[in-house]
């Protein structure tokens, strides 16, 4: 715009600026309105969807996971509060709270056997037994979600990865790198020997025994002096599924 001299010119310019601002504000407002309308539509559609597929969401683990992913994309957390519209609508909060309670139950009941560390797959199997459903109806994802909700209780529930396995920890044991290494090594046969630990990690005998004794004291390991080679074996119930604790190694 060409600048014109004089007072009238200045006033003109100010008026023009005002007009532009008004128009701009209008456009923004219209956009926001449209957006809000779209969001409301989307939300009601999502609610409609959730209502319609409520039983699928509760029953089908794959569907459940996809629903969670969809919610995460639009920034809705259906588990954020049990009083929220989502939870009320779906009872999906109840699903995870119930699952959480069952997980706590199982972790406590098996603690004297496994020292408070349980294989996620084993946990799922026990959960399905308890719920009288088959393994397919309850995914690892469900368990992990329920466990993440348990963290709020400050109860020390945590999922740790050891080698290929995911283990759920229900006692506040601090596992250091040495311990993790041993647990990983034990996954091959269910047990380790001092010799094997020394050789695999090139540790001194003292270091190997130290780590194994700690695991023993924590209730995570059990000793076995019964093999005919006379070497003490340290077994780890947390990496052995109860269903396949057949001791197939014994012959080796």
């Amino acid at each position: 715009m060409r600048r014109r001299p004089g007072i009238a010119g200045l006033q003109n310019a100010a008026a023009t600026r005002d007009k532009f601002r008004l128009v701009g504000e209008n456009v923004a407002k219209v956009r926001t309105d449209v957006m809000q309308e779209q969001l409301a539509t989307f939300r009601s559609q999502l609610e409609e969807f959730a209502r319609k597929h409520k039983s699928d969401i509760r029953k089908n683990s794959v569907f459940r996971q996809q629903f969670h992913e969809m919610c995460a994309k639009v920034g809705v957390d259906p588990l954020a509060s049990n009083k929220g519209v989502w939870a009320e609508l779906l009872g999906i909060g109840d699903f995870y709270y119930e699952l959480g309670v069952q997980i706590v139950d199982i972790c406590i009941a098996t603690r004297s056997h496994n020292g408070g560390l349980i294989d996620l797959l084993e946990l799922r199997k026990l959960l399905c037994q308890k719920r009288k459903t088959d393994l397919g109806s309850l995914s690892s994802d469900d368990c992990l979600r329920a466990i993440s909700k348990l963290k709020v209780l400050g109860s020390g529930f945590e999922v740790i990865s050891v080698g290929k396995k995911k283990l759920v920890r229900s006692v506040p044991t601090e596992l250091n790198k040495d311990h993790n290494g041993i647990l990983e090594l034990a996954q091959a046969k269910g047990y380790v020997t001092v010799e094997q630990v020394e050789k695999d990690f090139s540790w001194s005998t003292g270091r190997a025994i130290d780590a194994l004794e700690t695991l023993l004291k924590e209730g995570l390991a059990m000793i076995d002096d019964g093999h005919r080679d006379g070497k003490r074996r340290y077994w780890f119930p947390c990496v052995t599924l109860s269903s396949d604790a057949s001791g197939s190694e014994a012959k080796s």
Partner: peptide
């Protein structure tokens, strides 16, 4: 069938 149960813990 789990060997360590045969050794006193």
């Amino acid at each position: 069938n789990y060997p360590p149960y045969f050794t006193l813990q």
